[in-house]
Design a protein around this nucleic acid. Sequence first.
RNA 1: GGGGAGGUUCCAGAGCGGCCAAAUGGGCCAGACUGUAAAUCUGGUGGUUCUCACCUUCGGCGGUUCGAAUCCGCCUCUCCCCA
Length: 399
Amino acid sequence: MSDGTPRMNDFQILTRNAVDVIEENDLRKRLEHAASKHAKLRVKFGMDPSSPDLHVGHSVQLLRLRAMQQAGHQIVLIVGDATAMVGDPSGRNKLRPQLSRAEVERNLVTYQEQAARVLDMSRTEVHRNSEWFDTMRFEDVLRLAGKATVARMLERDTFEKRMEAGEAIGVHEFLYPLMQGWDSVMIRSDVEIGGTDQLFNLLVGRELQEKEGQAPQICLTFPLINGLDGRKMSKSYGNSIGLTESAVEMFGKVMSLGDDVMGMWFALLTDLPEAEIEALLAGHPRAAKARLGEELAAFYHGRDAGRAARESFDRQFRDRELPSDIPEVEHAWPSDGVPLAILCRDLGLAPSSSEARRTIEQGGVKLAGEVQKDPKFVVQRPGEPLLVQFGKRKFVRVR
RNA sequence: GGGGAGGUUCCAGAGCGGCCAAAUGGGCCAGACUGUAAAUCUGGUGGUUCUCACCUUCGGCGGUUCGAAUCCGCCUCUCCCCA
């Protein structure tokens, strides 16, 4: 796939699914220029070390980077360790907590491991922006701040909304776009990509580069993918799929995806040709979703794992058989047995005995396949490992 | 610097001396239905071997009271108006 030489169809590769392409003609020109000189474009992507958990939402952009990398361009990953001290106001309606250096460092490590699932990190240039921000003096900061106006900052819809809603905006938050823009200057980026919520920040990079006598970077934005439930994808909503999740988890989560977001997921997360996607979407939604789940699981875990995940899911939920990989755990049994609610808590099936009790009373718990609605039901040490099912998906065998 | 309004359980938002672990909605969990979709219906949603009771919670610390999320004082944070 990759021979290290930029190709002429890079334009399509790079802009697939893109929402904003600024400036399109400029991008074509630069790609041609790079191709004719066998030069690489420097493609910048900023990572936010305040949230180290990457999910498929991030992969929309990572996949573009991967394509660019395979086309022979240079990916430059900026670790926003200095900016993380500020907190990106994008898409926020609240002030972000500021992180300590130690937290940032820790997050950075896990982030890189996860990014490596999509990118070839050995061919990726990585910079922390503290490299240039740490040595700035206040005077330098002021000079940077002087390159933007308050009116310009307030144009930002997120600030505008927060103002209207009467929420707090820290003065330091105005610095965030400037810092991110300055990163572009420091690494002389040709292209920067980000989510649609990053457009403002990306454009600030262009302006700063121009003021510093550099060619302004091309800005590409990509859609923010909706989560499993159709809302904005966010780890805190619990509607995302993490890049490190198992094939089985990925497949299962995809199956719980809302029908109306399926098309978006196909387009943004798979390489399937458009015609095939349309055919799938025209068929039965369950079949399409299963295909999507398998594609996704296969991308991160290989074809075999993808297929296995699908088969195991079908067994468990379509054919209503037990999952194949029920964990078996040892329990320290008191001689007179233990009440079911307590057992569930101790087995880690429920976070508290109260919660276990509620679930049990509502018929959500089965012992050896039989519903047991009495939380005080005393379970004795079983001869054979006892199958406990808690809710729809938690299974365990106790000994 | 002055004046005003606020900080409530995951979120939004009621409560304004006891009936408050705290309305309602959202989210989430469980059950029915089903394609682990949507829609709908039912129940639940701080903790404790728990239908009683007890413990922790309504920005923080103190106080008044038999009793405070609710009253008082100080502190702290946010928003608005004026300067």
